[in-house]
């Protein structure tokens, strides 16, 4: 059985907002081209069609919903973090 991580100190809190257009261009730059954007009362839902992944963007929150694809999740996480401040 694999060793679990030691009890870790939590990651920093995040602050700021994720701007839609710059985020979409960053996704394009990373080869994620087919993104369907749906407007919601509080923000947007991005549907990454080829990757079958949803990103729910709101002013104070981002929710990444993905299938069994850890590499993609990690990439999306790092792209989102580029826009946020860590505290």
């Amino acid at each position: 059985i694999e060793e679990p991580p030691e009890l870790m100190s939590p990651k920093p809190l995040l602050s700021g907002a994720l701007p839609l257009e710059p985020f979409l261009s960053l996704l394009h730059k990373h080869g994620i081209m087919e993104v369907k954007v749906e407007d919601t009362p509080d923000g947007h839902i991005l549907h990454l069609q080829a990757e079958d992944t949803l990103i729910q963007l709101e002013e104070d929150s981002t929710h990444i919903v993905c299938d069994n694809n850890e590499a993609l999740r990690a990439t999306l996480r790092d792209l989102v973090l580029r826009f946020l401040q860590k505290l």
Partner: peptide, 17 residues
């Protein structure tokens, strides 16, 4: 601290299957 600095916390969440 965030509150006192007038900053909003941004919640980043993941859901995986």
């Amino acid at each position: 601290a965030l509150k006192e600095l007038g900053l909003n916390e941004h919640q980043l969440r993941f859901t995986c299957r």
